[in-house]
Amino acid sequence: MNTSIISLLINSFWQILVPGLEITIPLTLISFFLGIIIAIFVALIQIADISVAKHIARFYIWIFRGTPLLVQLYIIFYGLPSLGVQLAAIPSAIIAFSLNVGAYTSETLRAAILSVPKGQLEAGYCAGLTFIQTMHRIILPQAFKVAFPPLFNSFISLVKDTSLAANITVLEMFMATQRIAARTYEPFALYCEVGAIYLLFCTVLTKVQIYGERKLNNEW
């Protein structure tokens, strides 16, 4: 490897990392947070067996799991304006990512809730608790423990999936790399570099996951 490539990698490192810290990470965190909130509602609606809402929930999951994330991004950013709904790139990306994550993780949560013995819900009712109270106090804390590793899977996937937002003009890490590559004609080195930065982010998250699991397993 000649010295000019090494200096290019060093120079570009910050130019790639900064959009990573400023866009990729916040985009991931916000979208995942909103996605989880959607997922809790969608999972609970199905567990509570609310008739019409349940069908809407299944329909939503069907659509967002059954179509490519890239297509969802395009529809929201490029498609909706023709219906008169014009959204900036970042809000569009947040909407697409959180809806997509919500669809997948709602199934994770639903399975985790169902893994908690049903008798505890009945015991909650018998103690005078409502459905929501029992979910909040008894079932969801236990379900969360079960769901934690697969939720982290989704979280790590999302970190990388945010690179798709480059397609709808969001200047995140991958797009920043593309621009440098177009200017310097060093695609191999630069795309390896951005890959390594994604890997770095995900390595940190893996450590967080291990720490979190240990923490969760301490009690009961």
Partner: peptide, 24 residues
């Protein structure tokens, strides 16, 4: 219950007082 159905995430004392603090 036949199978006790205690709240697994709560201690003995927390199990007993859950109905008092949350429902009442």
């Amino acid at each position: 219950f036949q199978n006790y159905n205690l709240f697994s995430n709560k201690t003995a004392l927390e199990n007993v007082i859950e109905g008092l603090i949350t429902a009442r």
